[in-house]
């Protein structure tokens, strides 16, 4: 199974640049999976000479994946090393690793890239710019440009980490697959509560006191409605309901809910 066709530095760099498709492909079914498929396709083609294996791998990467694109290369770099070494045998581990790490790395990446840096340099640029001085603005741009040129190297870090991890794991890939699936499942439990947002706008009048249904629900269990929504959708998917149908159903539910005031933004 060990491949003769080793991935070269050029392959990795090319993949890193193809990753700049970024979140333009984001969709509700599969997140930024199309970006991952697109960036990995040339190297996967190199790894899998057999079309059936290639489609297996592509189908795996077409599954839901959403990660801050700055740190995502750490994950896909590592999974690339796994697929290079173990081929289709590694697909389950690849999927679990992606699911387990995408949440936490997004948490770090989003905080640094979208909150910390813009807040610091935005405050500088904004207060200088108000007085007609563009220096802060150029500084802001320069910081992000530097980060931009450093980004492709994260792919090498991920790939190297993945390679080292694999040489340590040896024959214990099954145990590793199970273990990271636990990590992934816990992370999904967490992001359901932090990312899905469903709130009811209904209120009750009791003895002249207005009580909102949402505050009662929050006392029973915070994020109860998002959890119920995810479980209903999960159950439907298990019953082989198509994803497009579910997306449409959710939109109709949201619209109808907005009309009758059941849901609030």
């Amino acid at each position: 199974m060990n491949n003769i066709k080793k991935l070269t530095k050029k392959d990795i760099l090319k993949t890193a640049f193809r990753h700049f498709l970024g979140v333009t492909t984001f969709n509700y079914d599969t997140g930024i999976a199309p970006t991952i498929v697109w960036e990995l396709f040339p190297v996967l083609r190199k790894i899998y000479s057999n079309d059936d294996d290639l489609v297996l791998s592509l189908d795996n990467h077409f599954r839901y994946y959403n990660c801050n694109p700055w740190l995502s290369p750490l994950i896909t770099g590592a999974t690339l090393a796994m697929e290079e070494k173990d081929g289709v045998k590694s697909i389950e581990a690849v999927q679990n690793l992606k699911t387990g790490l995408m949440g936490p790395l997004s948490g770090i990446g989003d905080t640094i890239i979208w909150v910390m840096l813009p807040t610091i340099f935005g405050a500088i640029a904004g207060s200088m710019g108000k007085n007609g001085n563009p220096l802060g603005m150029w500084l802001f741009l320069a910081v992000f440009l530097v980060c931009f040129f450093l980004r492709p190297y994260l792919y090498f870090v991920g790939y190297q980490t993945g390679t080292n991890l694999l040489s340590k794991l040896g024959q214990k890939l099954d145990a590793f697959t199970d273990a990271v699936s636990v990590l992934g499942i816990m992370v999904i439990g967490s992001i359901v509560s932090s990312t899905v947002n469903v709130q009811t706008g209904w209120t009750f009048q009791t003895g002249g006191v207005k009580i909102s249904l949402q505050s009662i629900l929050d006392q029973i269990c915070p994020s109860l409605l998002p959890a119920i929504l995810v479980f209903v959708l999960y159950y439907m998917l298990k019953k082989k309901v198509k994803m497009a149908t579910l997306i449409l159903a959710v939109i109709v539910l949201a619209m109808v809910g907005a009309v009758i005031g059941l849901f609030k933004a």
């Binding site: 599969t30 990312t195 899905v196 479980f231 939109i251």
Partner: peptide
């Protein structure tokens, strides 16, 4: 609500 679809999948 829509992110829930991806998580369910």
């Amino acid at each position: 609500m829509l992110p829930a679809v991806g998580f369910a999948m």
